[in-house]
């Protein structure tokens, strides 16, 4: 229970960063923090006490495994997170070269 709450607090921290910061790089960092909290939540959902990592050992077939389905989903989500983050950074560096600032208020005022 406490782990779910910590995970939720991490998500709220990311959300707070996205809403309050004015710097584009800070916004990207906050979004990746939100992503990380989501990954942690999925891994928590799949966890079973006393389970082992889901790798089949034919010599010893009586184990309980950790749920492999959330792990597979998170595996996909991590790679897509990398793709979105790199896309975001490309857009940010393009904006910086055009306007010379990271501040979103100044970019809004410039009306390019």
């Amino acid at each position: 229970m406490i782990a779910y709450i910590m995970c939720f607090i991490l998500f709220l921290v990311g959300l707070y960063g996205v809403i309050t910061r004015r710097n584009l790089v800070k916004i990207a960092v906050s979004m990746s923090i939100m992503e990380i909290s989501t990954f942690l939540f999925f891994a928590l959902v799949g966890y079973i006490d006393g389970g082992v990592a889901p790798i089949v050992d034919p010599a010893d077939p009586v184990k309980t495994y950790v749920d492999p389905l959330p792990q597979a989903l998170v595996l996909t989500a991590i790679v897509i997170g990398l793709a979105t983050t790199s896309m975001l950074m490309a857009i940010i560096i393009r904006l910086y070269r055009k306007y010379g600032t990271f501040d979103i208020r100044e970019i809004k005022n410039l009306k390019g």
């Binding site: 990207a28 990746s32 799949g46 990592a53 990398l82 983050t85």
Partner: peptide, 25 residues
């Protein structure tokens, strides 16, 4: 949490993300 595959992938992805962000900054 007994997820070694995720740990491996996260190490690689996090390193790449860090490199990209540091390059931009």
């Amino acid at each position: 949490l007994k997820a070694p595959d995720l740990a491996i992938v996260q190490i690689v992805v996090d390193t790449i993300t860090l490199i990209i962000m540091v390059a931009v900054v």
